[in-house]
Design a protein around this nucleic acid. Sequence first.
DNA 1: CGCACACTTGAGTAATGTCAAAGAGTGTGG
DNA 2: CCACACTCTTTGACATTACTCAAGTGTGCG
Lengths: 251, 251
Amino acid sequence: MPLAASIAAHPVAFPVIAQANACKNCSARPQGFCAAIKAESLSRFSLTHTSQDIEAGKTFLNEGDPATHFFTVTEGTVKLFKLLSDGRRAVTGFLFPGDLLGFSDADKYNYSAEAVTPVSLCRFPRRQLDRMYADFPGLESQLLKLVTRELAAAQNQMVLLGRKTAHERAASLLLSLIRRQGRSGRNAGWIELPMTRTDIADYLGLTTETVSRVFTVLKGSGCIALAGGKVRVADAEALADLADGIGGDDE
Amino acid sequence: MPLAASIAAHPVAFPVIAQANACKNCSARPQGFCAAIKAESLSRFSLTHTSQDIEAGKTFLNEGDPATHFFTVTEGTVKLFKLLSDGRRAVTGFLFPGDLLGFSDADKYNYSAEAVTPVSLCRFPRRQLDRMYADFPGLESQLLKLVTRELAAAQNQMVLLGRKTAHERAASLLLSLIRRQGRSGRNAGWIELPMTRTDIADYLGLTTETVSRVFTVLKGSGCIALAGGKVRVADAEALADLADGIGGDDE
DNA sequence: CGCACACTTGAGTAATGTCAAAGAGTGTGG
DNA sequence: CCACACTCTTTGACATTACTCAAGTGTGCG
């Protein structure tokens, strides 16, 4: 349960205090860049940001807009995307709790971001970044680590998009989702697949029809099972063989 | 002229002094992460690394090897690539003087690197990184900036690979090369194209044949001229229209 | 209950890949 | 200096993967 959401739902007399407890109980903290913050600094750190809830389907960050803030995801799934002028879309990543978002070198955002599910975010003003580095030792290093890791993931995705077949792409995505949701420890085998076929297609450089057909084949060969918004990977071995070098993940 | 090369060619009595001057005269310094080093710290900074010359065609860094060092390119062109188990190759980037190379979050390199032309590098031991952060303020920030910029470039490349046509991909690459070599101020209009069609194909997610055909078309329509290892962009306007949202560059 | 919307499935097409061969550029040794 | 060998590039003919267009089938929500 996102603490941020409960705060938003129950305004309190002393919001600063409420915020001061927010980080301490945040389930996403161990993953993200907040992991760099020592326990005794947590309440102080809580004051550096505000939390924010986004409803599913809402685009809350637009490519090209001034990059005034950056975010961490504390709850839900986010997709990042870029558009070509004729409307073609590329999804550059799916984000889950703990992931960083909107951190840019330039003064504009490099991508747009949309909530796939209801999402909770922590929102940091970029202007305070230098001060945060000074106030919280290890924060800049953690940021560097996360961005470097993201870059490595992006390079894996380039291999996927440039050289893998449709089947390999799908297998890679599924394995990547397992690995990432697995570390958050969900119920056995079944993992969430909150994004639409269109989102997946835009992420894998395919069409929805092709994604659907590939999933049907994987289902038929017993590699995976699909039900509702979930997938179960029945034969991870076979899937890994298909994916070659494991998934094009992000983060 | 790479100073590193001249040092290698002329061993001196006091190599430390020779190194101490190396950075001061380095033409790549303004671009790369060495740009963070103040003039008065330069000779001290020179001692943190060694220089190294690589002959064309040599793979000097292998994906999966222990990431003991990282590098900056001071002269020449490098390609980064990743392989699938059956030999399919994806080139994830071309590097030029000033670019960073081999910086990894994990303890292994994320890609292989090969010298496209004769290359000169500066080689930094990764173990000293924390000490370097302490000794040279601003270095970590510069690193973060560069990696963030690379990530943005990687995301552009994902759009290219996932959603652009062969013609658009080629146009994007050419524009990106212009922009990057332009800032180094070469002779008017003509830019170096040191990589082979195969390298380009592996970078654009195409085959050599397709790259060749696309170049022929672009030549025929008057957009570009090809001669020897060089290209001249005659109609940057038309090329930019084709590329949509400008190039899938790195860095 | 019925309208959206997402997903699946089918039939035909198009962009790009594959296979093959010829042309162009470059370096080597006679 | 030329002939040969090698690699890179271009071009052609054909094959194939994935896309496009088009129904049709769920599935959730008002």
